[in-house]
């Protein structure tokens, strides 16, 4: 397991921490955060590539804060792959093997299995410069896994890959995590990746680890507005008290679920729209003016003004077209009460 205690870094224009983090053995932990929030620094400090200002890092019970990177048994895969350009695919993958103390037939079999799983057998003799982005990322993964690390660190491994290869690598990561006895720690700014891959997630913003927990906990019950926004709640409102009830956007909410000064959040995809007041039973329904409609691939993004509050709604393009909505028109929006998150 990985345990980080009170880790801090001081850079000229940025302060990280203090960070406290605990990751269980064989867990798939995803650290979410926007660019420049300090994710990679945490990753590199676990790998021993950055020296912290203060704090301790424990790997499997051993204090490794001052242990050299080569003695940590931690593999790292970067977004840009960082493949050795003067070596072939095979030489890249086998680079770390000569430094491993326990070189057995079993470890060779593990390596063969990794190469097979990642579909690299036919590329072994190639130069890494001849590979596609997805293939390069597979080589970087194979190289890191070849040393059979206790921990695999992944620094935004999917963000530099063409979208068509991204889901392949995602599937592979999941498969590798299920089959290998390795703890995975990945950083990303894409919460969809976290949804698909993570057992637990942490959200970091401006050098502060705001919240950690299971995917369910963090996505359903964000601790604050910063976390809420980051996990996709693009509709965040602060309810106002009117008499004994709390209201947002003209909608009354259960006062037992929240209190004045706290926030409610809604994901854009949890909201449906219609020209009539016809929603399933139990839905909370509001009335507003359609302000904008932007087509995005197979979907459509709308903004709707409801009594001074603006809702962002994602809908199916075909479905929206069938409803014949026009800008400036009065429309209804509805959502299930369970889609409202209180934080």
């Amino acid at each position: 397991m990985i345990r980080i205690n009170q880790l801090t870094y001081q850079f000229p224009n940025f302060t990280l921490g203090p960070i406290d983090l605990h990751i269980e053995q064989q867990e798939f932990f995803i650290l979410l955060g926007p660019t420049g929030s300090g994710k990679t620094v945490i990753l590199e400090s676990i790998a021993g590539l950055q020296k912290p200002h203060s704090g301790d890092i424990f790997l499997f019970g051993k204090d490794v804060t001052r242990v050299a990177p080569e003695n940590r048994q931690v593999g790292i895969v970067y977004q840009d792959q960082a493949l050795f350009p003067h070596l072939t695919v095979q030489e890249n993958i086998e680079f770390g093997l000569r430094y491993q103390k326990n070189k057995t037939k079993a470890s060779k079999a593990v390596l063969a299995g990794i190469i097979d799983t990642l579909g690299l057998a036919r590329h072994l003799k190639k130069s890494t410069t001849k590979l596609s982005g997805g293939e390069k990322q597979r080589v970087a993964l194979a190289r890191a896994l070849a040393i059979q690390p206790q921990v695999l660190l992944l620094d935004e491994p999917l963000s530099a890959i063409d979208p068509c290869f991204r889901s392949d690598i995602q599937r592979l990561l999941r498969q590798l995590h299920e089959t290998l006895p390795t703890t995975f720690l990945m950083v990303t700014h894409d919460f969809n990746e976290a949804f698909y891959l993570a057992d637990t997630v942490g959200v970091i913003s401006k050098g502060i680890l705001e919240q950690t927990g299971t995917v369910e906990e963090v996505f359903q019950r964000p601790k604050n507005k910063a976390v809420g926004e980051f996990v996709g709640m693009q509709n965040i409102f602060t309810p106002q008290r009117e008499g004994r009830s709390l209201y947002f956007a003209g909608l009354r909410i259960d006062a037992e679920k929240t209190s004045e000064g706290r926030n409610v959040g809604l994901r854009p995809e949890d909201i449906t729209v219609g020209t009539t007041h016809s929603f399933p039973d139990g839905f909370m329904v509001g009335r507003g003016i359609l302000q904008s409609m932007t087509l995005q691939g197979f979907g459509c993004e709308m903004t709707i003004d409801c009594e001074g509050s603006t809702f962002l709604v994602h809908g199916d393009k075909g479905n929206i077209r069938d409803k014949g909505l026009t800008i400036g028109e009065q429309i209804y929006l509805g959502f299930h009460p369970d889609a409202v998150h209180y934080f």
């Binding site: 050299a68 990177p69 790292i76 770390g96 430094y99 491993q100 890191a144």
Partner: peptide
């Protein structure tokens, strides 16, 4: 850095 993480001094 990657080379170091792979065990090379």
């Amino acid at each position: 850095q990657v080379a170091r993480s792979l065990g090379a001094g």
